[in-house]
Nucleic acid binder design. Structure first.
Lengths: 230, 230
DNA sequence: ACAAAAGTGTTAGGCCTACACCCATGA
DNA sequence: TCATGGGTGTAGGCCTAACACTTTTGT
């Protein structure tokens, strides 16, 4: 039994971060889960997470977890809720600061973690450890809210993408269908996309146009009071 | 020196909740601050807050703080961010789960706390303890965001209110001016207000109509996919 | 040949915005 | 009597939503 050498006058909860890592494969939103190798809930699937170190912020901790699983350094990571139910962990009082991350599946490389990790579609999520199903539900709800007003969808797509891909993404996240022409018009009118390539004159109608997100333009528009809406 | 009797194998941060309590006096948004009676930052103004007990959730903890200051039991309290900078407290590592609360000033009674508490307008906030200025800024930003899409403004007004009062509230929070007629039309068209009283036939034009928020109607509309927007 | 994917434009209706006058009250 | 606060309606522009056909390619 290891010595308990960190002592306080008052009881302290343990603090972890968990990270809901979203990806998009062109059709569905995916979430990265890891299979737990230790008790409690050994063998169950769970969100990547771990204990907060005393010299790192929650965001640094979440990024560390993210990097261990995907080798990605620079992606969107955002805290969305802290879960504090008294009995969420059978070992001791543990509160967790939950984050979500948006990654491009193409850039993800296998984690260096020994633990088995796998991408799951939102409609085939297995039974999860702890209260991770609740965390995941809140993360997807937050993702829905955010994509309506911030151009975060582009973090899930390759840098260069087609309009149908973008529409699929919005439809997958918001669980609705858009009219194709209206979606085109709306997106193009926003002015935050630039054409990625000159379209070859002989391009067949079957080959979609390619776009990239124009972050500079978005920033400029936003400063002028422009508000994205979907 | 009190005995340090709570021991763990790994270091644990202390966990507090802080509560940004918003009120509205008909003209300005107000925030309740308390003057610290002990070090660190003794004498400085701070957000009401305190340590998380091991048998309460963060929301329960925040509500407890709120009740100590205002005697209010049933108000909107919502977590909005957890602040985890490593050096936010000079005593030890402390993370704080920040909440905001919306209260009706008319219902607030003096706290039972010995500490001095006072309402401040947002434009006359004094220098705050810890990172509480940052917390407050994020709270007001969140309030702005929320009021655009959720009918939370009514929690700050008396149950029965007039249209100019409601408009003042929106203008105070969003820091904009609305055209009076457009605001009336928009609000009434939403269908979430009911007239609070039959308007006396002899009512002078100088006496404004009174309304109350119709929560049932809002719920119904929301389920039909209606989305509030401002 | 047929199904599936992608490009493209128009119209009608609703919503938003801007705007002016009247009445009552209190100073 | 003058300033202030409050109630009320309309017209134009913009955005949204609904909608069909053509081309190309793969099967």
């Amino acid at each position: 039994m290891e010595e308990k050498k960190y002592c306080y006058r008052y009881p302290h909860p343990a603090v972890t971060t968990d990270c809901v890592i979203f990806g998009f494969d062109g059709v569905s939103i995916k979430v990265l889960l890891v299979q737990r190798g230790i008790d409690p809930h050994k063998g169950k699937w769970a969100l990547p997470g771990g204990f907060l170190k005393m010299d790192e912020t929650a965001e640094e901790c979440a990024r560390r977890e993210l990097c261990e699983e995907t080798r990605l350094q620079s992606t969107t990571v955002e805290q969305f809720h802290t879960f504090t139910s008294v009995d969420r962990d059978p070992r001791e009082r543990v509160i967790t600061i939950a984050h979500y991350a948006l990654v491009r599946l193409s850039e993800v490389r296998g984690g260096d973690d020994a633990a088995k990790a796998e991408w799951f579609s939102l409609d085939e999520i297995p039974c999860l450890a702890f209260d991770h199903d609740r965390i995941l539900r809140m993360a997807t709800a937050r993702l829905k809210e955010r994509i309506c007003f911030e151009p975060i969808g582009f973090e899930l797509l390759p840098e260069i993408f087609t309009m149908p891909e973008l529409q699929n993404l919005y439809e997958a996240i918001l669980e609705v269908k858009f009219d194709r022409r209206n979606f085109y018009n709306k997106m193009l009118k926003l002015g935050i996309l630039t054409e990625a390539e000159e379209r070859p004159k002989n391009a067949s109608r079957r080959i979609p146009c390619k776009y990239r997100f124009n972050a500079a333009k978005y920033k400029e528009l936003k400063q002028k009071g422009f508000r994205l809406e979907f």
